[in-house]
Amino acid sequence: MFDFDATLPLMAVQFLILTVILNALLYKPLGQALDNRDEYIRTNLQQAKERLQQATELAQQYEQELVSTRRQAQALIEEARAEAQKIATAEIAEAQQAVQAELLKIQAEIDQQKQATLQALEGQVASLSEQLLAKLLA
């Protein structure tokens, strides 16, 4: 059971040979592959992070633009409404003025006619009363 012989050094040599072979076949290429993959994943992750940041920034920018555009539109609507209000008011006022003026003119006309009629009537009254008087006296 405990007989040491040439097996011992030969096993050691064999083991060293196996180490060299496995180093060339396994540890170097696969270690390289592992490192490459780590590198790849790290750069990809970095890129993805950058892209995400860019996308977030873009989204924020669009949001801001949207807000400002909406505000502009609101202001425009407001302005248009105010203008329309103004125009309407002005037109109403004008129309009212015109109506007022017409009314005054008509009133004046009526007054004038009334005056004239009254005057004519007064003249007639005089002549009629003269006629009446003559009839009575006759």
Binding site: M1, F2, F4, D5, T7, L8, P9, M11, A12, F15
Partner: peptide
């Protein structure tokens, strides 16, 4: 075998 383990 003891030879192997001692070698290692």
């Amino acid at each position: 075998d003891i030879n192997t383990t001692v070698a290692l």
